[in-house]
Design a protein around this nucleic acid. Structure first.
Lengths: 209, 209
DNA sequence: TAGATTGTTAATCGATTAACAATC
DNA sequence: TAGATTGTTAATCGATTAACAATC
């Protein structure tokens, strides 16, 4: 697991490769060339070969790539076979939707606890997990040692919760809040989902078509 | 609204500027220099000046930028003062959360209709809008002429719906599905939100810390 | 005026694309 | 073997950073 020097641009494209290869595999495609992949995915063939070669020579000259093998390799690189113990904080509309909707298990995560500060939600089941009151977070983490947290809470509450989670050993955050975790905890992995930023970007596009 | 040549990298940063300036304005900050903004936002001062200058000289030498004015200007560039009529397709967990949770009005949109193929949901209120059966989409669009659609449906159903919406005059899509709208409709604005890709990116990060 | 800070040009850096020798 | 297609190096392109003259 040495820290490696793959560029962020490449990493962000990996899930897309994984997705397309999965579709092809399910459709029964056995082999694919970078040229054919290029047509389907909208990246240049050159970029595809360059990207895949960051991780090793998965292809074969004169033949192309074996779909099933490449799919498996990229899955391994992404760590989708892992089972990182994960807690979700904030069971409002968004938190419940994320908990119920995402295939955590297929992507390297195991959701083991859902927390909210609202007493009224306590006990309600989401994806077969009871919503727990946030006061129980400390004990739960001490007992279960989750390494990942999904943050579906308003930015105002994120600082306190994040500090505590990091203290309790959480190493990765899927952050739906506007709190800048990376700025405060430089040694932690953070992936931000800023839905409102995305929506404003769309606003720009439609007003500049 | 001439098509202009601002790079995508700059556009994607605008919502972040808007967010930080909004916070500062609310906190009573009147003026800010690119150097000070740099510290707060984590972009270089040089990049900030370069970015803002794409849209005109908002600053003043020796002084910096007026927070309230800059906030307003960026809002105008992003079109947050618009009221693009918007329909949301797919009222499952994710669709309902997006409908209930997002501040469409503060970002240039006006959500006017929610649709789902599930008869059982029909009539249920989300954000004071009744969920309508998808069969009523054609008539609704003919009568109300929405220009934006939020797609919260599985990829398998997206092609048919998207084709119809484009025919009915929809010009922008906020796309939560894995269907590649842009590839099929090149003249339409598309902003993709691929939550599962984002989650897999996090998986990569935590496994390569 | 002197100090500060922008607007803008030039230099650097990184990412994408093109080309082609290696090889299956 | 001949044809195809990769792996990889070199060329191009674009984005970021640095520098500084303009100017408030």
């Amino acid at each position: 697991m040495a820290k490696n020097d793959i560029s962020m641009a490449v990493i962000k494209r990996l899930p897309r490769y994984y997705r397309f290869l999965g579709e092809m595999k399910r459709a029964g495609v056995q082999r694919i060339s970078s040229g054919e992949l290029s047509k389907r995915m909208g990246f240049t063939a050159s970029q595809i070969r360059q990207d895949l070669n960051c991780f090793g020579g998965f292809g074969q000259q004169g033949y192309g790539y074996n779909v099933a093998q490449l799919y498996k390799e990229i899955g391994k690189i992404l760590g989708v076979d892992k089972k990182a113990k994960t807690v979700l904080i904030g069971a409002g509309n968004l938190g419940r939707a994320v908990a119920a909707h995402m295939s955590f298990e297929e992507r390297g995560f195991n959701l083991i606890g859902i927390f909210d500060k609202n007493e009224a939600l306590a006990g309600q089941l989401v994806r077969n997990l009871p919503i727990r009151h946030i006061d129980g977070l400390y004990d739960f983490c001490r007992d279960n040692a989750p390494t990942v947290a999904v943050l579906c809470i308003p930015g105002e509450h994120a600082e306190v919760i994040t500090d505590e989670l990091v203290r309790l050993g959480v190493k990765g955050f899927w952050n739906f809040s506007h709190y800048d975790i990376a700025a405060h905890h430089p040694n932690v992995a953070v992936e931000n989902v800023h839905l409102s930023d995305s929506l404003m970007t769309l606003s720009y596009y439609i007003n500049n078509l």
